[in-house]
């Protein structure tokens, strides 16, 4: 309906350019490399993650095995690459879903007093369980596997996004331009669609990048203490936990997954920081 208006003045994106230089670019490259390596895993190594290579017990790094081999003769590099797939799949599934759920709860909380009290208390309860502890509780019921990990990441994201969206919504609704719109007869839905959502989107996007890094942390932490993906299926945290027992024999066994986790978390953090910086710069 407002097509003409939109075409007449396409709002320049504040975020544009945040990821083409400096921290943003570095973060993007870090994440991109790991994602590409995960996607291309079958092409990058000749082995499968469960394949036991005869005679290759705890070998050090070499051309054939960049991260060496583990205690049951598997190629660590292959297991790490395939582990990336699991970690990223969980993040890409759970983070947006949790953000959506939390965002809706936050919008709902901003609409009525009762809903606000209810959602706020619910968030309080969830936040009282730190993610790892929550993981333990969920695993106690569901048993180890990918499902509890997804549940925990979603549960950890919902209150974060819920609170973010709630406070941002309340803040935007106090602003004179929203008051002006409401005084001239705009409905709540109009205000929500045209003013609130566009103006809180930036904050949500920054939080998405931050949440992705938190999710990588949760997933690998749960796998690390053995309450995530069931072995022998590979995961970054799982490989790292296995490596703990073999620190003396193959150094790169631990360094490999360690490096990948750090690169992923750091990459998402850098992206979030760059987005945040561009947002601040854009808002004068």
């Amino acid at each position: 309906m407002t097509d003409i208006a939109l075409k007449a003045g396409k709002a320049p994106r504040v975020r544009r350019g945040a990821l083409t230089h400096g921290r943003g670019l570095a973060g993007l490259v870090l994440v991109g490399v790991v994602v590409a390596a995960g996607l291309l895993a079958p092409l990058l190594t000749p082995y499968t993650p469960q394949q036991q290579i005869p005679g290759a017990n705890l070998l050090g790094a070499s051309g054939g095995h960049p991260f060496g081999t583990d205690e049951v003769n598997r190629d660590v590099f292959t297991r790490v690459l395939h582990g990336v797939r699991v970690d990223l799949a969980v993040c890409l599934l759970a983070v947006p879903f949790g953000a959506l759920l939390g965002g809706l709860a936050g919008l709902l909380a901003g609409r009525s007093g009762i809903a606000d009290v209810f959602t706020q208390r619910a968030f309080d309860v969830v936040l009282a369980f730190p993610p790892v502890i929550l993981g333990i509780a969920v695993t106690a019921v569901l048993g180890p596997g990918v499902l509890p990990v997804v549940c925990v990441v979603i549960a950890a994201e919902v209150p974060l996004f819920g609170r973010l969206v709630r406070t941002a919504t309340l803040k935007v609704r106090e602003l004179p331009y929203v008051d002006a719109a409401e005084t001239m007869g705009a409905s709540r839905t109009w205000v929500l669609r045209k003013h609130v959502v566009p103006n809180i989107l930036d904050a949500v996007i920054v939080q998405l990048a931050l949440s992705a890094s938190v999710a990588v942390f949760i997933v690998s932490a749960m796998n690390f203490i053995g309450i995530g993906v069931r072995p022998p299926a590979p995961s970054l945290g799982g490989v790292l936990a296995d490596a703990m027992g073999q620190l003396g024999s193959n150094n790169l066994y631990a360094v490999g997954p360690l490096l990948v986790i750090v690169v992923l978390v750091l990459g998402f953090q850098l992206i979030a920081q760059a987005l945040l910086a561009s947002r601040r710069g854009g808002a004068r």
Binding site: S213, F217, S220, A221, F224, G237, L240, A243, M244, L247, G248, N251, A254, V255, L258, I261, V262, V265, L266, Q269, L270, Q273
Partner: peptide, 23 residues
């Protein structure tokens, strides 16, 4: 600071164990 926040606790734990226990 970015590193301190970005590196997960347990990852750092393994790294430090490797560094001061083995290397």
């Amino acid at each position: 600071n970015t590193l301190a926040i970005a590196v997960p606790t347990f990852v750092l734990g393994v790294a430090l164990a490797l560094l001061f226990g083995v290397v």
